[in-house]
Simulated assay, not measured.
Amino acid sequence: MEQTIRVELSTTKKEKPKTDQLEFGRTFTDHMFVMEYSDPLGWHNAEILPYQPLMVDPSSMIFHYGQSVFEGLKAYLTPDGDAQLFRPERNLQRLNRSNDRLCIPPIDEKFALKAIKQLVALEKDWIPSTEGTSLYIRPFIISTEPYLGVAPSRHYKFIVILSPVGAYYKEGINPVKIAVENQYVRAVVGGTGEAKTGGNYASSLKAQEVSAKEGYAQVLWLDGVEKKYIEEVGSMNVFFKINGEVVTPALNGSILEGVTRNSVIQLLKHWNIPVVERKISIDELHQAYKDGLLEEAFGAGTAAVISPIGQLTWNLEHLVINNGNTGELSKNIYDTLTNIQYGKEKDPFNWIEKVNEPVRVKR
C-alpha cells in the first residue's frame, strides 16, 4: 500500500522576489518535502512542511563522511498557465543510481515523482513567468545517523526544496570563455564521477576559483589518469561540432549521464545530424581547431540548458570558436529544448510531465 503525504501549510507567506532580480539558487519557496529512512521501517513519514531549518545531530554522518546525493530539475510555466516538468523520471532513475554508488537505500521513484508534483502544485504561484525563468527543484538525500564510524548510515532524510530562478550563467545563451584544466581533476573511473554526490562538486571548487580569477566562466575537465581526454565542462556535459559531426565524450564511469545530454543526442538524431559518443582528446580538438574544422562547442545541463563556448584556453593558447559567436546548431538546440520545456512547441518525444496530471508509468 502506497503511503500518503501529510501536509502542513505555512501560516506565513514569504515575499516573492521580482523576476528581473532572480539569482540562481538564492530564494526558496514556502514549503518543502521531507521523508525519513530508518532500519527496519524503510522510507516513511512523508510530509510537506513549511520551509524550515533541519534539526540534525552534530554527529550525523553526513557532516563527517559525506554520504549524500542530489538531483536538479525544473518546473516550467506554459503560455496557458500550466505547470510542467521535463523528463523527471530520468532524474529519479539517476538519483537511484547515485544512491546505489553511495550505499543509500533506493527510493520509490513513482512515489517520489508524486511528491514532487504535489509540492510543485502547492507552490505553483512561485513559478516565475518571465522568459528564461523557472522553478528549480532540488531533491537530495543525506545520512543522518548520529555515529562517528566509516560505514553506511542506517538513517537518512530525503528532502525536496524549490527555488525560483533566472539564468544560471549571467551570460545567458551568449558564449562563455573556458579554461582547459591541466592541474586538478574532477573524477576518475571507479570513483564517484558518474554519481551526483556533493563530494564531486567540492573537489571541483579550487580549479573553478582559480579560473574565475583569470576571467573564465568555467573549466574544461580532462580525465584523471592521463589528463588527455575531455570529460565535462564545469558541471555540464560537453559537445563539439567538428566538420559537420557532433562529438560528445562517451560515458566511461567518471562522466555524469546528463538528462540534457541524452535529450540533445535524441534531438540531433531526430534531425538526422551525425552525433557520436566517443573518447576525444584535447590534442584532437586542438588539431581540429588548427585545421578549421572545429565549428561549435557547447555545454549541456539542466541549469543553463545550453551554454555555448566562445573560447577555450589551453597551454596559454586562445582557441576562439565560431568567431566567439553562438553557433547556429547551439541556438537551434537551445530554442527547441526550451520551447518544449515551456510548452511552446510540440513534444514528439513524450518528455513533458504535466504537474496536474496523475503520474504516468513510462516504459
Score class of each variant (00 low, 15 high):
181 E>S: 08
182 N>T: 07
182 N>W: 06
182 N>H: 05
182 N>K: 06
183 Q>S: 12
184 Y>G: 07
184 Y>H: 09
184 Y>K: 10
185 V>Y: 10
185 V>Q: 11
185 V>I: 10
185 V>K: 07
185 V>N: 07
186 R>Y: 15
186 R>I: 15
186 R>P: 09
186 R>Q: 11
187 A>T: 12
187 A>Y: 01
187 A>P: 05
187 A>Q: 02
187 A>S: 08
188 V>M: 14
188 V>C: 07
188 V>I: 12
188 V>E: 14
189 V>L: 11
189 V>E: 12
189 V>D: 08
189 V>I: 13
190 G>V: 15
190 G>T: 04
190 G>Q: 11
191 G>N: 11
191 G>K: 14
191 G>F: 09
191 G>P: 14
192 T>F: 04
192 T>N: 12
193 G>L: 05
193 G>R: 02
193 G>I: 03
194 E>T: 08
194 E>K: 08
194 E>F: 01
195 A>H: 02
195 A>W: 12
195 A>D: 03
196 K>Q: 04
197 T>L: 01
197 T>C: 15
198 G>E: 06
198 G>Q: 04
200 N>H: 13
200 N>Y: 06
200 N>G: 07
200 N>W: 11
200 N>S: 05
201 Y>E: 09
201 Y>F: 12
202 A>Y: 07
202 A>E: 15
203 S>A: 13
203 S>E: 14
203 S>Y: 06
204 S>E: 06
204 S>P: 06
204 S>R: 01
205 L>P: 02
206 K>N: 13
206 K>R: 12
207 A>N: 11
207 A>Y: 01
208 Q>C: 03
208 Q>V: 03
208 Q>T: 12
209 E>A: 05
210 V>Q: 00
210 V>Y: 00
212 A>V: 04
212 A>F: 10
212 A>C: 04
212 A>P: 01
212 A>Q: 10
212 A>M: 15
213 K>C: 07
213 K>H: 12
213 K>M: 13
213 K>Y: 11
213 K>V: 00
213 K>T: 06
214 E>V: 01
214 E>R: 13
214 E>W: 07
214 E>T: 04
215 G>K: 00
216 Y>P: 00
216 Y>D: 03
217 A>E: 15
217 A>T: 05
218 Q>K: 09
219 V>S: 04
220 L>G: 09
220 L>Y: 05
